[in-house]
Nucleic acid binder design. Structure first.
Lengths: 106, 106
DNA sequence: TGCATACTTGGTCAAATTACCAAATGATTG
DNA sequence: CAATCATTTGGTAATTTGACCAAGTATGCA
């Protein structure tokens, strides 16, 4: 494997890693319905404002979302709609997979 | 959000988390070409046998792969072909996204 | 039966992640 | 300009992750 392949592999893993947290995954799901400001997440997620902001930063660095400041608010937008497709596929797998579901859905 | 939704969200996040490591992602890519025994990965990945085995366990618990013992070898198989589709989508995004690429492909 | 081969499991330790608090920045309002 | 609202940044502590080594289990062969 070339070092370029290595880099690409690492980059892709970073994207998955960014999605590998319940709060961030929730944010992605919400963003798939339309843009949202940080404040709207802060309420909904029930975590500290700073925590929410940091999660959004992770998603942004992974290239999954874009942000735009308008007035004093910052709006985030989903950049990668194909995530949702995969999310549906995973959901189907989880539901069809007794072994993993028993472990994961607990 | 109901606690059932919470559980599902958590389960999905676990799946992404499992994919969020270069070695495990590599394994998934290789498995998309066909089944493989642990030993074959051990050589290729260049990590300790036990490390390889643990990575495969993570993928298995996430429901992404199946394993089958035949003789003294254990063969792993990809359970979720749709991962590859998403992988391609991510790859496209990474290549089209200067900002993230600069960070991630370094 | 005894020994090699192919894995898995348990332990340990360093590094990464995540959450919160406090403080800093930036835009808006009085 | 001072005060306030929305958000980010920095610091710290608790938890999780990942890598290796050593030891354990299971299969196959002499």
């Amino acid at each position: 494997m070339t070092s370029k392949d290595q880099a690409l592999l690492h980059a892709k893993a970073q994207v998955f890693k960014a999605l590998g947290h319940p709060t961030r995954l929730f944010m992605i799901q919400e963003l798939s319905k339309g843009e949202r400001c940080v404040c709207s997440f802060a309420e909904q997620v029930g975590a500290d404002f700073s925590t929410v902001s940091k999660h959004l930063t992770v998603l942004k660095h992974a290239g999954l979302v874009d942000d735009e400041k308008r007035g004093q608010q910052v709006f985030y937008r989903l950049r990668v709609p194909c995530v949702m497709q995969f999310m549906n596929c995973i959901e189907a797998v989880l539901k069809s997979n007794a072994a993993a579901s028993a472990q994961l859905l607990r």
